[in-house]
Design a protein around this nucleic acid. Structure first.
Length: 427
RNA sequence: GGAGAGGUGGCUGAGUGGUCGAAAGCAGCGGUUUGCUAAACCGUCGUAGGCCUUUAAAGUCUACCGGGGGUUCGAAUCCCCCCCUCUCCGCCA
């Protein structure tokens, strides 16, 4: 959400910058609503001042023993008009807030202009895709053949876009999560948190998923609770409505959580395998920073995510999203894409964003040092990494001609072996 | 799920219908005093929104005592609903 005063004072330039990311701001609608709201507020407040004065007057008169019935009757009428105006103000406020809360963040100056993912800019490439002396298989063949991935039974138990992992498949997922958490907490300076997986509407509003993207979420019937689509939501909202001491910033947190997404509108995309699931596991990195340090921390956070890929010896590239492809709340986003031999392409495995004050303003997360006025923090987050897609990358990149999977050195202590062989107990 | 207690400013904590945005204390900030520190003393000290103003400041008004509704000329205070915290009981991993 934008700062109203700033937005109002810079309407034309905001309109242009929003257009750069493909959002069409209706200036007339904005100004009209803004003007109507201020009119109603002004009128209601004038009447309230009048009523307050009259109440004090009545109080004095009654102490003197005067009959105030008529005066009370008059004020009562004023009260009715106030109630009427207050209702108008409430309605206009809601409407205005709704309008404001659906306007996306503006992108940073370093973000290239563009309309779609075609205009994203590759800024870096690490590792060389391996040369195979046989035709590499996609994970949806490898997993079931090894008896470690079972999509049929997942469909029975839950439905399409769910997975069941057996034996070393399950252990591989757990090993990846443990490796990521250990590296981030021990070597990158993040504190681990384990947040709730169900979250309320206020939290989703704070990070920007609501009100605009409700259809992407799963909701618990009869409760104000939703399944978290990413740990970004519960972790960023840990400090909702709080003022953080500037000396403590930046605060770096990492969290393992499952993530639940309805994937409405993704029909036909990534239907094979486990690239796109209703549930996937992820280790998330979240930072709260002072405004002036957020871009430096954004680079660091992205490097922290990349470090995991490098330890796992997985070739990847870093892509800077263009204005049109950057998400609703973000000012700047890097996607990390891992090489998947089975798809013969790079595929998103992490997304690292700087939201500047956009989420902090929605979630009321401030910072204050000494006597300076409090200001909104900047929030950042990134996957470090999506475990499901890392699982896929391990299988596809390290598959052997005999169908087994070699395990990169860094992961071996976590998996307890250097190779995944066919699961003899998968019936 | 049942019974009870409670939610007031950064914190502690008064306040049961009328200048209460709210006593007092602590912390914070500014100052006086002081060889330094400490103490003492004086002052100051919430947030948001509207009006005014070129912006800001100042000024002024409005709102805010967990959230929402109601009663009243007037609500932190009375009534109703909800949420949260704590204690006990039940249930449960």
């Amino acid at each position: 959400m934008h700062d109203l005063t700033f937005f109002r004072n810079n309407l034309e330039s905001m309109r242009k910058r929003l257009a750069a990311r493909g959002f069409d701001l209706d200036l007339d609608a904005f100004q009209d609503l803004d003007r109507k709201r201020r009119q109603a507020v002004t009128e209601a407040e004038m009447l309230k001042a009048e009523r307050n004065a009259a109440s004090i007057e009545i109080s004095k008169l009654r102490k003197q023993g005067a009959d105030t019935t008529d005066r009370q009757q008059q004020v009562r009428l004023t009260g009715d008009r106030i109630a009427d105006l207050d209702q108008q103000v409430t309605n206009l406020d809601d409407e205005f807030r709704d309008l404001l809360s659906r306007i996306p963040n503006i992108t940073d100056a370093s973000v290239p202009l563009g309309r779609s993912s075609d205009d994203n800019v590759e800024v870096k490439r690490w590792g060389t895709p391996r040369e195979f002396d046989f035709k590499p298989k996609p994970h949806w063949d490898l997993g079931p053949e090894l008896g470690i991935l079972d999509l049929e039974r997942a469909a029975k138990v839950a439905g399409a876009r769910f997975a069941v992992y057996w034996g070393m498949g399950a252990r591989l997922e757990r090993a990846l999560i443990n490796l990521m958490l250990d590296v981030h907490t021990n070597e990158h300076g993040y504190q681990e948190v384990l947040p709730p997986f169900l979250i309320n509407s206020a939290s989703l509003f704070g990070t920007g998923q609501l009100p605009k993207f409700a259809e992407d979420l799963f909701r618990c019937e009869g409760h104000d609770l939703w399944l978290a689509p990413t740990a970004e939501v519960p972790v960023t909202n840990l400090y909702r409505s709080e003022t953080l001491n500037a000396d403590q910033l930046p605060i770096s947190l990492c969290a393992y959580t499952p993530c639940f997404r309805s994937e409405a509108g993704s029909y036909g995309r990534d239907v094979r395998g486990i690239i796109r699931q209703h549930q996937f596991q992820k280790v998330e990195l979240v930072k709260f920073t002072k405004p002036e340090q957020s871009y430096e921390e954004h680079e660091k956070l992205t490097r922290d995510a990349e470090d995991i890929l490098e330890r796992l010896e997985l070739p990847y590239r870093r892509v800077l999203l263009c204005s049109g492809d950057t998400g609703f709340s973000a000012a700047k986003t890097y996607d990390l894409e891992v090489w998947l031999p089975g798809q013969n392409d790079y595929k998103e495995i992490s997304s690292c964003s700087n939201f500047e004050a956009f989420q902090a303003r929605r979630a009321q997360i401030r910072t204050k040092s000494g006597k300076s006025k409090s200001e909104f923090v900047h929030t950042l987050n990134g996957s470090g990494l999506a475990a499901g897609r890392t699982w896929v990358a391990i299988l596809e990149n390290f598959q052997q001609s005999d169908g087994s999977i070699a395990i990169p050195k860094a992961l071996q202590p976590y998996l307890g072996c250097d190779r995944i062989l066919p699961n003899e107990k998968h019936y």
